[in-house]
Structure formats: C-alpha cells, structure tokens
C-alpha cells in the first residue's frame, strides 16, 4: 500500500506546490493580507471568519485545543504575536513536528524550543494539525509508514546530501552542534523518520527549509535512510566517544592514557616490600 500511497501523496504535494509556486509573491501577499485581516478580525471576536473547509469535527476539536493551549502566544486565530510567529500556512507538518516532539508548547521562552515529552497525544496533535491546515495550505504531516525510505532511499546518496546540507549544523554523524548565542542544532539520533522529514520541509526554529525542489522527496528519503544507518552505526573500533571528533579523543589521551601510564610508572618506581 505504502508505495502507491506515497507516490500519490508526493503527487499531491507537488501539485499543491506547483499551484503555490505559480505565484510566490501572490502567496506571500495573500498570506500577508490574510494575516492582517485576521489580526483585525481577532480584535472583533464576533466577526470571526472560518474557512469553509474548517467545519469538520476534527478541525473544531483542534481549534478548541488551540484556543486553550496555543493561542496565548500564537494569537486567537494563529495570526502570531510579539513572542510567537503566525501559524497560518505552516501546514500540518509543522504542527506534527513541533507538538509531536514536545517542542510546543514551549516550557521556557528564554530558550530554544527543546524536545521533551509531548503534552498532547497523537489524536490531539492530529486535530491541531487539521485545524492549522484548515487555515491555509501548507506542507501536510506525514507518517513513518508512508515514508518508504528503506525502498526508495539510497544510503550513500543520503550521506552525500547530509554532508552538503545538514552536517554543518548537525555534525558529520548527526550528533548535533552549537549555533550562535546558545542555540544549537539537536542530535538526530533516534529521531523518528517522519519528524526528520517534516523538519526538512518546514524548517523549525533556526533550521532553514529544504524545499522539494532543492532536495526532492526521494532525496529526503535518502537522507532519512542515511540517518537510520547512522543511528544503527556499529562501533567498528570500540567506544564511540560521542562521535564529536578529536575533542574527546584528546580528553581520553590526557586522562585515561597518560593516567594509566603514570600509574604503572609509579608502581614501577615503588620499592618492593
């Protein structure tokens, strides 16, 4: 089922995109207008407008959760506020990624949104995603099942793409790395494929977006394949020392190695009893 589904989904995504691509400025302008309109509208609660598609029970359930849990920062109509961005047009993928990994709602506003135990269960997350998707088109959320990376991904190609596009922040082995002023690119070890996919499509927090035109869906699956292989990378030469490069190796040389040798030297120079 999955191959066909995926192909269909891909087609759907690219169709959507082509439609949007037709006039990127228009879209930006439209979003801007919608945003402004919603901003104005939110000042007048009675004048709230709901897009026609946003009437299903799932959407209203999502909206209810949104109003309770998200609107204090993102605005009553997801139009954004001084401390949080607008969510109109970010799509279900962004919701699934941010809420599904526990990054949203944020626990501590002073820091970068961190992965933690999700507050909402998958059903609630799906409802939220449905609500946000109903506001404006955006990348749809995906599931691990319909990402057929084992079949369509190529590990070696994924490695090439990863080193060109991802390793500069996430490190050569996906261990994460430092960004400016305390921000960081998280470790990608153990991250579910769908979240990797959604992050590439939506560009959460500091991360830039990797559109399907610059990294095709197939290439994204290759990156996921490579990451899966990196996740299960065996330790060819013993303890991995964190896979962060020579830093830990130097630490081991300065502690364990020279420590052992000085220990034996001390024993050697000690008079026997």
């Amino acid at each position: 089922m999955t191959i066909m589904n995926m192909k269909k989904r891909m087609k759907k995504i690219s169709a959507l995109r082509r439609k949007r691509i037709a006039g990127p400025i228009l879209v930006v302008a439209a979003l801007f207008t919608i945003g402004t309109a919603f901003g104005v509208a939110s000042a007048l609660p009675s004048a709230q407008q709901t897009p026609a598609s946003a009437t299903s029970p799932l959407v209203s359930q999502g909206k209810a959760i949104f109003l309770r849990g998200c609107s204090s920062c993102h605005g009553l109509n997801a139009e954004g506020g001084s401390i949080a961005p607008a969510l109109i047009g970010v799509g279900g993928a962004a919701v699934d990624f941010q809420v599904g990994t526990g990054r949203m709602p944020m626990a501590d506003m002073s820091m970068q949104a961190m992965q933690k135990k999700p507050l909402y269960d998958p059903a609630q997350t799906a409802a939220l995603a449905a609500y946000i998707s109903s506001l404006a088109p955006g990348p749809a959320s995906v599931t691990n099942e319909n990402l057929n990376w084992e079949r369509d991904g190529n590990i070696a190609q994924g490695g090439q793409l990863f080193r060109t596009n991802c390793a500069m922040c996430h490190n050569f082995a996906g261990q994460g790395g430092a960004l400016t002023n305390g921000k960081y690119a998280p470790s990608l070890m153990g991250v579910e494929p769908k979240y990797v996919y959604e992050a590439m499509v939506t560009g959460p927090q500091s991360m830039p977006k990797f559109t399907d035109a610059t990294i095709t869906p197939q290439e994204k699956l290759s990156i996921i394949s490579w990451l899966q292989s990196a996740n299960h990378e065996q330790n060819q030469g013993g303890a991995s020392l964190g896979r962060v490069g020579p830093f830990t190796e130097g630490l081991v040389a300065w502690t364990l190695a020279i420590g052992l040798l000085i220990g034996v030297s001390t024993w050697l120079a000690l008079k026997a009893k």
């Binding site: 990127p24 596009n165 560009g203 830039p208 977006k209 559109t211 035109a213 610059t214």
Partner: peptide, 11 residues
C-alpha cells in the same frame, strides 16, 4: 534552479 523552488526560509 528557479526562484520558485525556494520558499522563504529555504536554503
């Protein structure tokens, strides 16, 4: 690559 291939925030 075409300009439309990049969304805002994309690299």
């Amino acid at each position: 690559i075409r300009p439309e291939d990049l969304e805002v925030g994309a690299v």
